[in-house]
Structure formats: structure tokens, C-alpha cells
């Protein structure tokens, strides 16, 4: 019996030491695309249904954790910030019958929705935050998407250390969800620069990386393929799922 256990434990330790190379060949091998196909299954089974739970003021985290690229420090953004975003215009263009350029005042006037929802980060943590802004559906409708439009791309002011801009995207169905909002206020105050001033997206039914900060332009497109890495987002281009409902 002891000999058997010795053989078994020797095999086990041999297996562990061989694990590194085995793991490398698995993660980069042809099986990779099979593994990645689970995303389509997740999206078709879970999708975007129902309404995210809404909370009360008592549940709100007053200090909302920062976990994103750094606050933009380029001349365009700092210039806008200094003038209190007086010259900020949210551009909605692409496959639109009526492209828009909206001031913050026009955006506020377009719609008003307040929601206290849980923000779940892909890393694992959750926070409860109060958002106030305009339902994205309202703004998209103002631009009158052409029939060919299937996605909305969010272009943002922030860039990583390599100069790669942040961007995100949603399908029109996800964009139409009532809890998908272009937020202007965070916890009863205009969003501060670090949290995405003056306009950030909040997608209550998906993970936090979909909720792009510092949105400058919304582009209606037929396909995600032509933009940056082609997978529909900054993190998506680095291997994260486009469907972040899981």
C-alpha cells in the first residue's frame, strides 16, 4: 500500500512540474477558439432580460472605488475640464439619420432617470452607487439610427500608457435597456473627473468594464470589425468577453 501511495504521489508531483508547459500549449493551442465559443452560449442563454435590482439611498457607497485607466490628462480634456465642460459636446454620429451634438444642458433636458444599482467589477468586487442621467435609448433615438445600424460604439477621452484609447460598445438591444444610462451625476453630484466627468455610460446588467467613463462620442455602426482591435472594446481587444453579463 505504501509503495502504491509513493507511486501515486510521484506521478502527481511529476504531473505538477510538467503543468507549466502543458498549460501554455493548452491556452495558446487550437482548443482556444472552442473555449472562446462559450461566450456566444452565455449571451444567448443569459442575454439582457429583466431589471437589475435597485437599492435605496441607505445602501449607497459614498466612496466609489476607482478601477480604470487614469483620468485623461491631455490638452483637450483638461481644457474642457477647466471651462467646466462649457464647450463639451456629446457627438452621436455614424449610421444616423440625424447626427447630434449635444451640450450638457441639452443632454440633461433630454431625459431624467435616477437609479441606485450594484456595480460588479470583472475582478470580483461590488459597490452600490446612485446614478442620474439620460437613458441611452433616448439619446440614440434622437439620432435616428439607420436600418443598417446594429451596434453603438462609445469613444472615450482616456488612453492607456501606450496611447491606446478606451472604447466600448453595446448591441442596440442592450443599448435600449432602460437601466443603460448616460450618467451625469454620481451619488447626487455631477460626476467628478476621476469617475468619468462629464458623461459616463452605466450598464446595470453587465460588468463594470462596459460602463465606459469619459464618453466623448457615440457612433452607430453596422459592425464592430472596423474599430481598433475589432472586438468591440478596449478590454475585449485584450481577450475579455464582449458580452459581459457574466
Amino acid at each position: 500500500m505504501k509503495r502504491r501511495l509513493f507511486v501515486a504521489s510521484s506521478l502527481a508531483s511529476l504531473g505538477l512540474s510538467a503543468c507549466g508547459p502543458i498549460k501554455d500549449s493548452l491556452t495558446n493551442g487550437p482548443f482556444r477558439s472552442v473555449v472562446f465559443s462559450a461566450e456566444r452560449l452565455n449571451q444567448s442563454v443569459i442575454g439582457t432580460h429583466g431589471m437589475a435590482r435597485e437599492y435605496t439611498d441607505a445602501d449607497v457607497d459614498r466612496e466609489f472605488r476607482l478601477d480604470s485607466l487614469d483620468t485623461p490628462s491631455d490638452a483637450t480634456y483638461t481644457g474642457l475640464l477647466k471651462s467646466g465642460f462649457r464647450d463639451y459636446r456629446l457627438v452621436i454620429d455614424g449610421l444616423a439619420e440625424r447626427p447630434q451634438k449635444l451640450t450638457l444642458a441639452e443632454l440633461r433636458a433630454a431625459g431624467d432617470r435616477t437609479q441606485i444599482t450594484r456595480h460588479d467589477c470583472v475582478e470580483g468586487w461590488s459597490a452600490i452607487v446612485k446614478w442620474r442621467g439620460v437613458p441611452l435609448a433616448t439619446v440614440v433615438a434622437m439620432a435616428q439610427p439607420k436600418p443598417a445600424a446594429r451596434y453603438v460604439i462609445f469613444h472615450c477621452f482616456d488612453r492607456d500608457q501606450n496611447g491606446q484609447p478606451y472604447y466600448e460598445s453595446l448591441g442596440l438591444h442592450q443599448a435600449a435597456h432602460p437601466q443603460t444610462v448616460l450618467a451625469l451625476d454620481l451619488n447626487d453630484k455631477p460626476i467628478d473627473p476621476a469617475h468619468g466627468a462629464p458623461v459616463r455610460l452605466h450598464v446595470a446588467t453587465q460588468l463594470g468594464y462596459k460602463s465606459a467613463k469619459w464618453v466623448s462620442r457615440i457612433e452607430l455602426v453596422a459592425s464592430l470589425a472596423g474599430t481598433f482591435g475589432g472586438t468591440g472594446g478596449y478590454w475585449e481587444d485584450q481577450g475579455y468577453e464582449w458580452y459581459a453579463g457574466i
Binding site: 472552442v34 473555449v35 472562446f36 461566450e39 470583472v122 475582478e123 478590454w235 485584450q238 475579455y240
Partner: peptide
């Protein structure tokens, strides 16, 4: 862990598959 090195994106995908 799988993958061995820090790789949340791949870890999630293998987990879901």
C-alpha cells in the same frame, strides 16, 4: 491556477466553457 500566470480574461473563458 489556470492559466498559470495572472490572466483574468483567459481564466474566465476557461471557467465558463
Amino acid at each position: 491556477t489556470f492559466p498559470g500566470t495572472q490572466d483574468l480574461a483567459d481564466g474566465r473563458r476557461w471557467h465558463f466553457f
